[in-house]
Design a protein around this nucleic acid. Structure first.
Lengths: 150, 150
DNA sequence: ACTTTACCTCAACCTTACTTGGGGTTTTAT
DNA sequence: ATAAAACCCCAAGTAAGGTTGAGGTAAAGT
């Protein structure tokens, strides 16, 4: 408990492997926060590093910044989030990951049987519309008729 | 072998569950083709239905239109692609799907141990940089140092 | 014949996630 | 005391994957 060091934007960028412009951007979107020094330059608490790590991990999972922001909103506001807090987040995302994995597995398992067999353009093709778990992607149910065969 | 029916853009759109504008767009991007009738309206061969199905399936897998286009380019140009041709495509994509699944599994398996444990912002964190299979996403290796701990 | 529906083109707009550039200030290094 | 880095803000640009709208023609229904 000796710090609460103030990191400059350049340092944070270098440590996280992102551009300074990305940090400006995240701040503007409300994902991270900073205060300013005398000369109006941004200064960050160390915990911004973890936030950025989490942002990048989330993106690899296919989670949007909006979603990340929503989740960050549930972190404690008063104190710096601790391991417990982050672990809670991770649990929710694990579930999402599991769903996404299950979805892709279904897609994969349908793929050979499907693209090859001629059913791909038919009404109930499992690949074309495999109980859309990810239906919130906006890919609604698709209506094809039997004429769609070769 | 009685047809080679000519489908209008509206019919194709309805059958595939996409907008007419999307068909224009795909055509402009070189993913599908049409010819024109007397009145300059688009007409499609039936095989466009399968192409669009494949496009949509690919998108669910996270494959970009550019990639789909590249793959379509390997289809026979003279004759209408047959089941064999499509099956070949599907095999390549199955591999991609497997990789993507493996990647997400790795991410998931790292998640609890990682976000919670404090390593997330460290140099060799498996979640932060898990042998980036999907490194072509442009998420290069990330350089964090040990100061990134809490 | 007339009206509606479908279609055409082209340009502009939308969202996500940033980057780039211009013009100006602050810090840091020498 | 300078000069080079680093920083600031704001506006505009980028890429993907389309959508929306305007103004006009074609095809279909009655």
């Amino acid at each position: 408990m000796l710090e609460e060091a103030n990191l400059s934007v350049g340092i944070v960028a270098k440590r996280c492997g992102v551009n300074v412009s990305a940090l400006h951007f995240y701040e503007q979107k409300g994902l991270i926060r900073s205060w300013r020094n005398q000369g109006n330059q941004r200064r960050y608490k160390r915990d911004v590093l973890r936030r950025i790590s989490v942002i990048k991990a989330a993106q690899k999972m296919g989670i949007s910044l909006e979603e990340v922001k929503a989740v960050f909103a549930q972190l404690p506001n008063q104190r710096t989030p601790d391991k417990q807090d982050w672990a809670t987040l991770s649990k929710a995302w694990q579930q999402q990951l599991n769903q996404r994995i299950a979805y892709l597995e279904k897609l994969r398992d349908s793929l050979t049987g499907c693209i090859g067999c001629g059913c791909l353009s038919m009404k109930n093709c499992p690949i074309y519309n495999p109980e859309d778990i990810l239906a919130d992607d906006g890919v609604g149910p698709l209506l094809l008729d039997k004429e769609a065969e070769e």
